[in-house]
Design a protein around this nucleic acid. Structure first.
Length: 677
RNA sequence: GCCGGCGUAGCUCAGCGGUAGAGCAGCUGUUUUGUAAACAGUCGGUCGUGGGUUCGAUUCCCUCCGCCGGCUCCA
């Protein structure tokens, strides 16, 4: 259900981490990434696969990104890349934003070292929309926002000096000595981690600042004229919580001030789509300090929630699922059987009942599905058995991780557990993919698949995993196309590999929605069996799957995707009627009668009879409330008596005159067909 | 949980060592309006919580709670 980042490479930002490169290529060519140094043919170009394109090491130019402003003709003065390991690189032909940003990271480190003598710098790659650098400050000091301003000012000064970026190839040992004598322990550590076969490394000098780096870079700092530092964060060294925390500074860099301004403007626009903001404005949901991460669904939000729920329920019934509803709390005995007690307890809300008994609030539905399956003997004839369960789940997520509807502690999944024979796995997966295609197709959502494979700590035998992973890869190749998905090594569930469906929020953060997981362990732990054709007992496999994922997260994503302008079938109020004369009984009657016509067609209608507010004000209010259709009716319409109304389509910014009958038919059809906005 | 930031009226925010202000919303009145804001008046806050410093704290310091951005985590 949750966003996962990549272990062991977590020096990247979460945004970068989420952009897992296809087939497991590292997602960034960082200054000093160990993996890159051992590459016999380092990428000749700063772009690498930072943006997530497939980018195996190669001398070919990497593919262009889809951002039109990513590339620029490279100025002549851009120097050739220094070659590590003595291998000359092809000269980059263009100055990319990645090169620019990586160079900005160097400049920032240079500024920090000047301003904070004794600061150590660790790694500082270009990332999507910017760059960062990690530091350790003397006396374990921390950066605050005012430090950011100082650093940024110094960067501007250094940029004005047009300091050259000078590459230098060094013997590895010499480089080690250089950094050791400078007290740059991180760099020494990085050199020590480089493949022993590599004998030469390159460094770049910018003024007095020197960094271990394979380049390439801008020719001089004067090109860094549009940079801005954004925020500071504490990050664990090498991404491991057990390590010390370093200070990371994030910044952004662009070719021009105009582009920088456009980027900042884009961030502001995204903020307007933020589901937390819209949810508050439209009174869809609420989070109370007494229940962090646990949604209060307000009346209009419940409409959205229930529409999604009802539709999915009805569809799942058609698709052969039987719905069950199971307890929200179970005795710890259940969680011990399932393995949650050992593997997930710290994420559960526990309820002590008496001295001997503790209940656990369910973080997942699966164990109870096992209980239901086991209620009687099962025959191979009835497989696949599909149990859907919309139960309320609670997970004790760490306080710093909550995020509106997108990361909550109480939620409902469109969950189901499918008991299958080994032979049925592929076909059943294909069916689930069809469901995904259908449900996501309703919203014009852009989504991607990701396969998580066997983690370090796993249950069962490796051969079984290999077989399961191979099957899932086949399915993904068929369903998403070869390469049309990402592979995240080691990111499977501990009981089986999984396929996740990922969608981005307003500012590009990636979230996991749906998940399709293959599980051999849980049915075994619960002793689930079916009687096979030959009379023998067999253990079924179980497919855990949720398509929306959680209703909460899905709605959060939808709100951002549509900026609050939901498809008609989900809109809490679908049509608002505004009387021009709100003190005239005959007009009000007329408006009411039109409202009844629409309501009779199954539409959610509001008649705005508030007196004291002018018609124009009501139109504005309806617009702000994202009511999809607004109809203003007055005495003229009543007296004309031709049944023609003028309807305002909020989402398309259009107005149209048409007969009421036609309007009713049209809106009812739009809602019934669940067309996206 | 960790790092940084924030918490002032229902909402969005200003203010600041001398016990608070705007716009919108709400309410009342006038207006009856033809497609994104009529006008006037008025109500409304023990400045998140607890403690400390001070003659005096919304303001400075600390604790806790919550929120925001990262990190970590995330079956």
């Amino acid at each position: 259900m949750h966003r996962r980042s990549i272990r062991k490479r977590s020096w990247r930002s979460s945004a970068a981490a989420a952009r897992t490169c296809r087939r497991g290529w590292p997602a960034s060519r960082e200054t000093v990434g160990v993996g890159e140094f051992i590459s016999p043919q380092p990428t000749p170009h700063g772009g690498g696969c930072t943006r997530g394109e497939p980018a195996p090491p190669s001398l070919n130019p990497p593919p262009a990104t889809n951002l039109p402003y990513t590339r620029r003709q490279m100025p002549d003065e851009i120097v050739d890349d220094a070659a590590e390991a003595g291998a000359p690189l092809a000269a980059p032909h263009e100055l990319t934003l990645d090169i620019l940003r990586h160079s900005a990271a160097h400049l920032m480190a240079a500024a920090v070292v000047q301003l904070y003598p004794g600061a150590q710098y660790d790694v500082g790659p270009a990332i999507e929309d910017g760059f960062f650098y990690n530091f350790r400050l003397p006396d374990a000091a921390h950066f605050s926002d005012t430090d950011l301003q100082r650093i940024e000012e110094r960067m501007h000064e250094l940029a004005a000096q047009q300091l050259p970026y000078e590459p230098q190839v060094m013997e590895r040992a010499a480089a080690r000595q250089l950094f050791e004598s400078a007290g740059q322990n991180f760099k020494v550590d990085i050199i020590d981690r480089i493949d022993p076969a590599v004998q030469q490394v390159s460094v770049y000098r910018t003024g007095e600042f020197v960094d271990l780096c394979r380049g390439p870079h801008v020719s001089h700092s004067g090109l860094l004229r549009a940079t801005k530092l954004l925020r500071v964060a504490g990050v664990y060294w090498r991404g491991d919580e057990r390590n010390e925390q370093l200070q990371r500074v994030y910044g952004t860099a662009w070719f021009s001030q105009d582009e920088l301004a456009a980027y900042l403007h884009r961030l502001e626009e995204a903020e307007r789509r933020d589901h937390r903001r819209i949810g508050k404005e439209l009174e869809l949901f609420h989070f109370d300090p007494t229940a962090p991460g646990m949604t209060y669904w307000l009346p209009d939000g419940v409409v959205i929630f229930n529409e999604l729920l009802q539709y999915s329920r009805a569809q799942h019934q058609r698709w052969g699922y039987r719905e069950i509803s199971t307890p929200i709390v179970n005795d710890s005995a259940l969680w011990k059987t399932s393995g949650h007690w050992d593997h997930y307890r710290e994420n559960m809300f526990l309820i002590p009942v008496d001295e001997q008994t503790t209940y656990g609030t369910k973080p997942m539905n699966c164990p109870n599905a096992m209980v239901v399956f086991n209620l009687r003997r099962r025959s191979y004839r009835e497989l696949p058995v599909r149990f859907s369960d919309w139960g309320v789940l609670h997970r004790f997520e760490r306080s710093g991780t909550l995020h509106g509807l997108l990361r909550v502690r109480k939620f409902q999944q469109d969950d189901a557990h499918i008991f299958v024979t080994e032979e049925q796995i592929e076909e059943e997966y294909a069916r689930v993919f069809e469901i995904c295609t259908h449900l996501y197709g309703l919203f014009d959502l852009e989504y991607s698949y990701r396969l998580g494979t066997r983690p370090d700590h796993f249950l069962g035998e490796a051969t079984m995993w290999d077989r399961a992973e191979a099957a899932l890869l086949r399915l993904l190749d068929r369903h998403a196309g070869p390469g049309g998905y990402a592979v995240d090594p080691g990111e499977g569930a501990f009981y089986g590999p999984k396929i996740d469906i990922l969608v981005k929020d307003a500012i590009g953060r990636q979230w996991q929605l749906g998940t399709i997981q293959l599980d051999y362990q849980l049915p075994r732990r619960f002793g689930c069996v079916y009687i096979d054709r030959d009379g023998s007992e067999q253990t079924p496999a179980v497919i855990h799957r949720a398509v929306y994922g959680s209703l909460e997260r899905f709605i959060g994503v939808l709100i951002e995707h549509f900026a609050g302008h939901l498809p008609l079938w989900l809109a809490p109020v679908q049509c608002e009627l505004i009387p021009v004369q709100d003190d005239a009984d005959d007009v009000l009657h007329f408006v009411d009668s039109v409202g009844e016509r629409l309501a009779a067609a199954g539409l959610r209608v509001d008649v705005n009879r508030r007196s004291g507010e002018r018609m124009q004000g009501k139109v504005r209010g309806a617009e702000l409330r994202r009511v999809p259709y607004v109809i203003v009716l007055g005495r003229k319409d009543l007296e004309r008596g031709d049944g023609v109304v003028r309807v305002r389509d909020i989402r398309r910014h259009q107005q149209e005159d048409l007969p009421l009958d036609d309007l009713v038919t049209r809106l009812a059809a739009e809602a019934a067909e669940r067309r996206p906005a």
